[in-house]
């Protein structure tokens, strides 16, 4: 029987993190929240909901938080796979459960969520266009033909996890992760996920303009 650690990077998510962790804990026993130097009560809320909290002493960025989560999960010798899950509640726990099941049954190294495999996820035309362009860029530079390169919901197996090391501290980590997945010839699959853009997640989420920052960070490593 496998053991899954759910990694939730969080930064000032006090109002939302409690319910996100509680929902996760209904299906996953092991949840670790990587706190990226929050100034609010995120840490207390996450602990109260039953998560382990690993705290960065200073704010480093989401990419750094994910890598810290990976390192933490690898400390558990019984861990077989990890889920990466956004703290703002935009992901569905049911999707994560389905992805872990697929990873195990199909013997995959990684399952990546995609918003473009079905029509459930609603988004603006500009966001859709930007994400399409990002996926195309990722395919051109890494050779991994994903339909959605910037989905925060993923499942990675232990073997692949030991070969991943994210250096991009901020948002470019998504592309970097795909790059390293491509470089290690991992067996991967996409899984249709439903993303719910609430007012909260929209306010916390990235602006489309941030894609410019991502591109610059990728070009000048």
């Amino acid at each position: 029987m496998g053991r899954t650690w759910v990694i939730v990077p969080m930064y000032n998510e006090g109002s939302m993190i409690g319910s996100v962790v509680s929902e996760l804990r209904e299906h996953f026993e092991f949840v670790v929240c990587v706190d990226d130097g929050s100034a609010d009560d995120s840490v207390a809320a996450a602990r109260a909901a039953g998560a382990v909290v690993v705290t960065h002493p200073i704010n480093l960025g989401q990419g750094a938080s994910l890598q810290t989560g990976f390192d933490y999960a690898l400390l558990d010798p019984l861990m077989t796979d990890v889920v990466t899950f956004d703290a703002d509640g935009q992901h569905q726990v049911a999707d994560a459960v389905g992805m872990v099941a697929q990873l195990r049954s199909d013997g995959l190294d990684v399952v990546i969520g995609s918003r473009f495999l079905d029509g459930r996820t609603q988004m603006t035309r500009l966001k859709r266009g930007t994400l399409r362009l990002a996926a195309w860029y990722t395919r051109a530079t890494t050779g991994v033909a994903l339909t959605d390169a910037h989905n925060g919901l993923r499942v990675l197996g232990r073997d692949l996890l030991t070969r991943i090391h994210l250096h991009q501290n901020r948002m470019a980590h998504a592309s970097e992760l795909i790059d390293q997945i491509g470089g290690s010839n991992a067996r991967w699959a996409e899984y249709p996920t439903h993303i719910v853009y609430s007012e909260y997640s929209k306010a916390k989420g990235q602006s489309v303009l941030n894609s410019i920052n991502i591109l610059v960070e990728l070009l000048f490593r």
Binding site: W5, F30, V32, V34, V52, V53, V54, T55, H56, P57, I58, L60, A64, Q67, T68, D71, Y72, A73, L75, D76, P77, L78, M79, H167, N169
Partner: peptide
């Protein structure tokens, strides 16, 4: 930034409860 990140990560991991004791 890279050095600071690695340092902070080690601090974060050392001060966190070990996954095995959590279990």
């Amino acid at each position: 930034e890279h050095d600071v990140t690695e340092l902070s990560r080690q601090v974060a991991l050392v001060t966190a409860p070990q996954p095995t004791t959590h279990q």
